[in-house]
Amino acid sequence: MLATKADHVPSGPEWTHEVKWDGVRALAEVSPGGVGLWSRNLNQITTAWPDLLGFDLPSSDLLVDGEIIVLGERGTPDFRVLAERMHVRSARAAETLARRLPATYMVFDLLRLDGEDLTRLPLVERRARLTDLGLIGWAVPEAYDDGAMLLEATRQQGLEGVVSKRLSSPYRPGDRSPHWRKRAHRFRRSYVVGGWRPQEGTRDRLAALLVGEPTPDGLAYRGRVGSGISGRTSAMLAEAVSNLTRSTSPFDDIDGGVPRVDAVGTTWVDPVLVVDVDTHGLGYTRLRQPSYRGLRADLTPDDLPDQS
């Protein structure tokens, strides 16, 4: 069951609210043969997550829904770090990654228990029975009555957002339901321009910027921003960078530097321009779904705080 996008968090006693985790959705099925993990598209992903297996679970017949997360350096879920593990199919490689990047399974719904299909029950009953299981090794995240409070708390902590669920809702596998609503944050920060890339098939139409942020070690690469750049904006930015071309990257090799896929075809520029960018979440090494918002003629790189 999937949530629909919302522009606000619903209020009222008929709703409960959870943190929107920056992870990968997964079903876990416990049977006498062991534990199996399945993606949202029902592809088996058990091999990739050995650290989520082997716990003393309360039943040999159990089906739950949840989110797999991996914490980044700042102690918050980091999808870029998680992505290193998502597509691993080698058991040996998965064991190595599990030691370096341990995962947590955040279980938020109980669909079957001891042969009983619970999907027709209202969420409030499924949630109560999930809590009563006393899971060990897998986490059951808190649910909150006050959605507005949770939205502000997740914003301050740099988390992805909030999922609101109607307490009376059954679980309908595969459906995108209006009874589950997700409200993701957008964050705006200022970044330094270090390069630009042309539109595919052209040599001079500016289609994306490569941006970074100042750190004590230099300019750390944070990602490529293409959304929000078109038409007049592209022409304006092209003019702004026209006299700033340089032969080498201004980014230091912090956090791995600029990936080859971003570097090839890029025109490097002196890091003197500052732009505002909207993005999902904070605390990530790379911007998530960034969108260009404007050129900051009132700021220089020296005006930006060290955000490392």
Rank of each mutant, 00 (worst) to 15 (best):
M1C: 02
H8F: 13
P10F: 11
P13A: 04
E14V: 10
V19S: 04
V24W: 09
E29S: 10
G33Y: 08
N41W: 07
N43L: 04
N43M: 02
P50C: 06
L57R: 11
S59L: 13
L62W: 03
L63I: 09
D65T: 07
L71H: 14
G72D: 14
E73N: 11
E73G: 13
E73L: 04
R74C: 10
G75Y: 14
T76D: 09
P77V: 01
R80E: 15
V81K: 09
L82Q: 00
R85F: 03
R85D: 00
V88C: 11
R89I: 01
R89G: 06
R92H: 02
A94D: 02
T96L: 14
T96R: 15
L97N: 09
L97M: 14
R100S: 10
D109I: 11
L110R: 04
R112C: 01
G115N: 00
L121R: 13
L123V: 03
L123Y: 13
E125S: 09
R126E: 02
R127Y: 06
R129E: 00
L130M: 02
L133P: 04
G134L: 02
G134Q: 07
L135E: 06
I136E: 13
G137C: 13
G137W: 12
A139E: 07
A148K: 11
L150C: 11
E152T: 11
E152Q: 10
A153I: 06
T154L: 02
Q156R: 11
Q156P: 04
G158S: 11
G158T: 10
G161R: 03
V162I: 12
G174D: 02
D175M: 12
D175E: 10
R181N: 05
R189V: 03
V192F: 05
V192I: 14
V193D: 08
V193K: 09
V193Y: 04
Q199L: 15
G201F: 05
L206N: 08
A208N: 13
A208E: 07
L209E: 07
P214T: 03
P214V: 11
T215Y: 13
D217R: 14
A220D: 14
R222M: 02
R222P: 08
G223C: 09
R224F: 15
G226M: 12
R232H: 06
T233F: 07
S234C: 09
L237M: 07
A238R: 05
R246V: 06
I254P: 01
G256Q: 04
V261I: 10
D262R: 07
A263W: 10
W268M: 03
V269P: 01
D270I: 01
V274F: 09
V277N: 15
V277R: 07
G281Q: 01
G281T: 12
L282C: 12
L282M: 11
Y284E: 09
Y284K: 08
L287P: 01
Q289Y: 08
S291R: 08
R293C: 05
R293T: 11
G294M: 02
G294L: 10
A297R: 13
D298N: 08
D298Q: 07
D298S: 05
L304I: 05
Q307R: 11
S308Q: 08
